[in-house]
Design a protein around this nucleic acid. Sequence first.
DNA 1: TATTACTGAAATGAAAATTGTTACAGTTTA
DNA 2: TAAACTGTAACAATTTTCATTTCAGTAATA
Lengths: 145, 145
Amino acid sequence: MYCNNKNYSMSNGRFAISVHILTLLASEPEQYCSSEYLSGSININPVLVRKELVNLRNHGLVISKEGKTGGSTLAKSAGLIAMSDIYDAVREKQFLGKSINEPNPACTIGRQINQHLDDLYRESERALMQSLDKMTLAEFLQKFS
Amino acid sequence: MYCNNKNYSMSNGRFAISVHILTLLASEPEQYCSSEYLSGSININPVLVRKELVNLRNHGLVISKEGKTGGSTLAKSAGLIAMSDIYDAVREKQFLGKSINEPNPACTIGRQINQHLDDLYRESERALMQSLDKMTLAEFLQKFS
DNA sequence: TATTACTGAAATGAAAATTGTTACAGTTTA
DNA sequence: TAAACTGTAACAATTTTCATTTCAGTAATA
């Protein structure tokens, strides 16, 4: 849908942070939550929250409003957002990673390994996505008592 | 089986590097390959290769021999090594990651999110492993012409 | 219309993680 | 004893991640 390959490299906290943001928004439907409020629960800097919100917005998961009383809210019902949508929004590069350096093209193995890793990753990421398809944000929220 | 949580944090190139190492070893059965040779194909520092070999050895995937004519070789037939075994060897922490900071325990969502993320990760990682189970190192090697 | 409370975004810095390098003791072969 | 390796530590360089500051722009509202 949209891809901002600017600064991030799919990795650490981004999925967790986006899930956290969206869960908070889902728990306060009809409300616009400020980045300050969100960052208070996640315990990270509000500017980072706003950066994640840019991405979630670009992927059609949240809507933001500027100005006083501004903030963010879910762009659609939590029942219509799957965990795989969130994964898809934060995903970049290949989830199992590649070596930073180019393998040796003079070597039979080195010359082809990235192609074959790509194939393997594609297949296993598909399995991962299928699993993440099974839970919606609404179902995830229900776990919180 | 074994876990060396010393310096690494499951992430980027390690899976790819370990697959590369093992593919090279599988392509030269009956031989002990030096870390120099392996690093030449991967295009990384031989010391890094030796560090990965420590891990693969600890997980029972390779055997190494010291001294002149030393090097490493597969500990078992490539047909008996699944990609999931390699994933398992390099895996650490949670593959989708957590925020570095502790979420706010005073918040209903913050207090429980890590527990629920754990559950989600466990389930989706199981799906990933099942997918990686399907290919052996021998099958992977066959793709190289 | 001035104030307040937000977002959006850039720029910069600090901290952490990753990768590279050097060095050298120990092992085995010949 | 020399040569060619492994094993490992220590440290440097690089890259990535996360935090902070700052400020322009927007919208509500008193």
